[in-house]
Design a protein around this nucleic acid. Structure first.
Length: 255
DNA sequence: ATGGTCGATAGTCGA
């Protein structure tokens, strides 16, 4: 099973740049999207249906903002948009969607950015802690989880081009990294890092200057799998040659 | 610390 996660930074924009043709060539079974910035009614869904995908969206209340989606060739047993267990924060920003398959549930998640100010940095921490509580409840019901998407946090110094300069930048703050530590330690494996210990592997590049050309980036997009499923992992790669967005896709294959 | 770009929108905002 081939699964891709991709923060597209506007689904309509990437469609104009050749996203559909690229997706066809990937032969992905499931693609999880973040920052769709659209309601499903604004997307020509037939383009994806022609490739054999069923399309599911969880959009923000605010028009043109955030939003996640899952496109899948296999029929899911159930789709859940937002939270389906008690939660202190509603998913009105369109950050969570889940597809349940026979032996695996896949969540496409867009965790908040904290880059636009103190309010959003605080919201990010509250959101992440609430999300983690939800996942801990959910895994009792559904042990086999794959949680993919834009986490908006670099985990370790190896995951960012300039760790020292970014110690006070949201996305690499100690408390954010500690949250990600606790998230993984609660029963998930960072699939890419499990198979690849090399530096300079990033999934997002700033629009400043020539950051992408020089590969001065951050690894903030992950595919996290329930630890007991790690033996099913066959491949995990960052598709950094794909440039429809300021992020790039991450691909895994599992048995 | 500073700086520029983009997508979606119609306000500028959020990233």
């Amino acid at each position: 099973m081939k699964i891709i996660t991709y923060n597209v930074n506007g689904l309509r924009a990437v469609i104009q740049k050749g996203f559909v043709e690229w997706l066809k060539a990937t032969q992905a079974d499931v693609i999880c999207l973040q920052e769709t910035k659209a309601y499903s009614s604004q997307i020509p869904l037939v383009l994806f249906e022609e490739l054999g995908y069923q399309t599911y969206f969880q959009s923000a209340e605010k028009k043109g903002y955030s939003g996640v989606a899952i496109f899948t060739k296999n029929m899911p047993k159930k789709i859940t948009k937002g939270y389906d267990l008690p939660s202190e924060i509603d998913d009105n920003e369109g950050r969570i969607i889940r597809a349940d398959f026979e032996d695996l549930s896949i969540l496409s998640v867009y965790m908040p950015s904290g880059s636009s100010g103190e309010d959003r940095r605080d919201f990010k921490m509250r959101w992440n802690r609430n999300f983690h509580q939800y996942i801990q409840m959910l895994k009792k019901e559904i042990p086999n989880l794959l949680i993919v998407g834009d986490y908006n946090i670099c985990h370790q110094p190896i995951d960012i081009h300039n760790p020292k300069a970014n110690m006070k930048t949201s996305g690499f703050l100690p408390e954010e990294r500690e949250w990600l530590d606790s998230f993984f330690e609660s029963g998930f494996v960072d699939t890419f890092r499990h198979l690849n210990k090399e530096p300079h592997n990033y999934t997002w590049w700033s629009a400043w200057g020539t950051a992408r050309e020089k590969n001065l980036g951050w690894r903030i997009d992950y595919q996290a799998i329930s630890s007991h499923l790690i033996d099913r992992l066959q491949r995990a790669v960052i598709l950094n040659e794909v440039k429809f967005s300021d992020h790039c896709p991450v691909l895994i294959e599992i048995e």
